[in-house]
Design a protein around this nucleic acid. Structure first.
Lengths: 145, 145
DNA sequence: GTTCCTGCAAAAGCTTTGCAGAAGA
DNA sequence: TCTTCTGCAAAGCTTTTGCAGGAAC
């Protein structure tokens, strides 16, 4: 799936619009998520950024992500794991999780076409589509063995 | 959405087929889930069944649900809450969660029509569709105030 | 008689909270 | 200067684990 990365300036502008202070930690976290579209966990973000900011704490990552979710810049992706995964909000897309390697793949999906007459009186804010199974790589491995 | 309830005998047969011992606790838990299609949490199951089985422990509920998930009789519904919710496996359906009252509504959805060319080399085991927003009841309340 | 299950207590793991010092506006 | 943020330590919650007694087969 094609991924549009925002520029650093776009991110700064977004934060300013949402009245979120531009701390060094927040900018680093947002930049990491923008550059690495891997639906990271808090721990993954921590492990990566700790090299550059040794004083960084997980509390700050939790605080920042909660603020970004609140502001609508980031989404929590719940795929049945204990740890939450986070995703920069982009166009509508589904998530496929490989049960073997654990990787998550994005795929395009037309959310408008998703619906039901039963929901005609409901106000729908968010549509999530989660698939799971085996990715091509793990599938090939399984067939070979 | 129309819900098909299994008979008590059907449940017993299912358990026997899966080689899960028919303990009193397990039968009570499964019966509760079959009779009350409310996607209960462990705590809700516990609170309800504790009246009938005062010695029941949450550990047993966790053990039982894990066994039922393993056997494919029950699904975990992850809707972004801390607590997991559990659903007896039935036909394909989507879940709508009301952000105001927290209730979960089932709705019909044709899972076959869901897909993407990007996933043609993937082996898909499970398709989940989660919507969220406001249910008619909470929507009405909001408009009135 | 075996094997598996129950339930208590304790542990494990993720996330939140309280708060003093630091940094952003 | 004033407000908000950071990061440490501790607490809060859900879920899992170890294990002795008990129930299912």
């Amino acid at each position: 799936m094609k991924i549009m990365k925002a520029s650093y300036n776009d991110l700064v502008t977004e934060l300013k619009n949402k009245e979120i202070r531009l701390s060094h930690q927040r900018l680093m976290i947002l930049k990491y998520m923008n550059d690495n579209r891997i639906h990271p966990t808090v721990d993954e973000i921590y492990t990566h950024l700790n090299k550059e900011i040794p004083t960084l704490s997980k509390t700050t990552i939790y605080n920042t992500l909660n603020a970004l979710v609140e502001a609508g810049l980031v989404r929590i992706v719940t795929l049945g794991d204990k740890e939450s995964k986070y995703d920069i909000v982009t166009d509508d897309h589904g998530h496929f999780k490989c049960n073997s390697c654990g990787n998550i793949y994005d795929f395009e999906i037309k959310m408008e076409s998703l619906g039901s007459d039963e929901l005609k009186d409901f106000k729908i804010h968010k549509k999530d589509v989660y698939f799971s199974g085996l990715c091509p790589h793990c599938l090939k491995k399984k067939i070979e063995n």
